[in-house]
Design a protein around this nucleic acid. Structure first.
Lengths: 226, 226
DNA sequence: GAGATATTCAAGTGATCGCTTGAATGATAT
DNA sequence: ATATCATTCAAGCGATCACTTGAATATCTC
């Protein structure tokens, strides 16, 4: 017996935590959570060099957080399972709750105005059934194309202020983005409320919505975004 | 604007994960989860030097995972909240699910015999109400004294084989220990089943039981352990 | 006050990490 | 086969980490 089983177990647990301990890998996880992607695409999205992204992805794979498969010349990475997504979510929740710095940053995103509570995914689903809600996807168009909440319209943040006029003052807008590490929805809500609109943020992004087993629409929305 | 808010947020998230990325700190967290303790006690329990334990604890505090308060000469550490415990639990779950090495170690603890499913805490509570279960706490006596499941008897692992005869073959035994990082319950179940007894492991340890809002008994059990 | 106890701080060392660069591998198309 | 593209490997660099040692700080006791 080289080392005790307890020490061996703790080492494995620590390996997983270590995989989550670099901002670059958290960015990669966020992207991988949107859907299967190759190394080059992930590198471009995260601003890492290809070699660097590849190394980080291998570390995530060793930790069991992502899996990969070959498709022709490309190697596609995806989250290994729903528990991984929960772990990412919980990491964000602990940060928001226990780190003052995080609360300050999030409050700063709302630009002084107090942000309203996030809408739960269950609540959004219920209000979708009534047709009493406007859903706004503020992710980049290519991520929107891979999959989005049915009926959502896609407006990227940069265009939002310009296009805010398309919403009537009576519209109840729910904005969402990539997930707990993404600040687009926070910023979108701040922008819309500055325009006097009724906007709230969805709790969780598309990956969490999908993981709940709720419907996801592929390709463009029925209402074009520009 | 020194750096983007997104980068700042990711850095904070990574800080939390980094705090969980050292086996020594996972051990400390496990101990802190049992109940408030001072640095010296934690150092002794984990086998770390006092200065080293203190440094690790400060790192955990910076990450918002534990909080501390002064009590006389001592500084007592405790988990900051329930979310922290969930995070620890989830880390173990991801490891058990996605890392082959972990599955192998856990199976090895059962000593060849197939271990039965863990008993959920809800199920144990229901069977306690019927009085149809024997609860076994296999943690060290001092941790048992700080708090344990009402009616549980305390037998440390080293004494278990010797004392197994106190259980009749009809007893339905549920063993528990510190939580997801602790292997005592696994080992206890293996030992008892080798003796032909009906033993199963509780899902989660005392901290998780307590966090569920279930009753916890302080001081010694009505049935002495030796 | 002085002394004792519990914890934290500070400096030093070997190991590991994150990133870069340039070459090597694997799969496809011609 | 040869050429091409996507990914991985390998070596090197500065920065950070875990642990040790010894001193400094804070609190209680006398």
């Amino acid at each position: 017996m080289s080392i005790s089983p307890k020490a061996a177990l703790l080492k494995e647990y620590a390996l997983i935590a270590r995989a989550l301990s670099a901002p670059a890998r958290l960015m990669l996880l966020e992207q991988v959570a949107q859907g299967e992607r190759g190394v080059e695409g992930l590198a471009e999205k995260t601003g890492l060099t290809i070699a660097n992204a590849s190394q980080h992805l291998q570390q995530l794979r060793r930790a069991g957080l992502v899996t990969s498969r070959r498709d022709g010349k490309s190697v596609l990475y995806r989250l290994s399972d729903a528990v991984t997504l929960s772990l990412m979510e919980l990491l964000g929740k602990v940060a928001e709750r226990n780190l003052d710095q995080v609360g300050r940053i999030l409050r700063g995103l709302s630009g002084g105005t107090d942000a309203p509570e996030a809408v739960s995914r269950a609540e959004l689903a219920a209000r979708m059934a009534q047709g009493s809600v406007t859903i706004l996807d503020v992710r980049p168009a290519d991520e929107f194309a891979i999959g989005h909440i049915p009926g959502a319209q896609n407006i990227e943040l940069a265009d939002l202020e310009r296009l805010a006029s398309r919403f009537g003052p009576e519209a109840e807008i729910v904005a969402y983005c990539r997930g707990p590490y993404c600040i687009f929805a926070h910023q979108a809500v701040a922008t819309l409320r500055k325009c006097g609109l009724d906007a709230r943020r969805l709790d969780g992004g598309l990956p969490e919505w999908r993981e709940d087993g709720r419907p996801v629409q592929v390709h463009a929305s029925p209402r074009k975004s520009a």
